[in-house]
């Protein structure tokens, strides 16, 4: 058995080992962070180039497959990364159990709603101009 002294007596007695998913949150936060480095820089450049542009210019940009795909990836990575981050903030600072539970659920649902809204908007502009 691996490092038996690190285990609690109860953990050793039950002998199930780790759940193998303890680092999921940490790992997902890092992966989305790495993905967001190029995506965010690309987005900033795109926004600067579009500064003051009217709708047809904007729609033409989103109409291309590559910007549309990158924008969708940006939305997915941002909302996932943001939901993970806000989750930790809520867990750290909200002491009241009921309020914390409620906020954690709102955080998850709101990030999903925002992501779907954003993706739908991108797809609609891409297909209809």
């Amino acid at each position: 058995m691996l490092t038996p002294r690190m285990r609690s007596p109860l953990g050793r007695a039950i002998g199930l080992g780790s759940a193998k998913e303890g680092v999921d949150h940490w790992w997902a936060q890092r992966l989305t962070a790495i993905a967001l480095v190029p995506l965010a820089l690309w987005f900033v450049v795109g926004v600067i180039r579009l500064a003051g542009a009217d709708l047809p210019v904007f729609a033409a940009w989103i109409g291309h497959p590559l910007p549309a795909t990158l924008l969708i990836l940006l939305i997915v990575a941002t909302s996932y990364h943001g939901a993970l981050g806000l989750q930790v903030v809520i867990e750290d600072y909200v002491g009241n159990d009921a309020l914390r539970f409620t906020l954690l659920i709102i955080n998850k649902l709101a990030s999903i709603v925002l992501a779907v809204l954003g993706i739908f908007a991108i797809v609609k502009i891409s297909f209809t101009g």
């Binding site: 989103i62 939305i75 941002t78 943001g82 981050g85 806000l86 809204l117 908007a121 991108i122 502009i125």
Partner: peptide, 30 residues
């Protein structure tokens, strides 16, 4: 780092609003 993370999460609403407005039409985009 935390404060800017929270601010950017809220800022995502602005980004999505921008995209949705563009999807709705020229008036809302303007």
């Amino acid at each position: 780092h935390r404060a800017t993370g929270i601010a950017l999460s809220v800022g995502t609403i602005l980004l999505v609003w921008w995209l949705v407005a563009a999807a709705v039409g020229p008036k809302s985009y303007a």
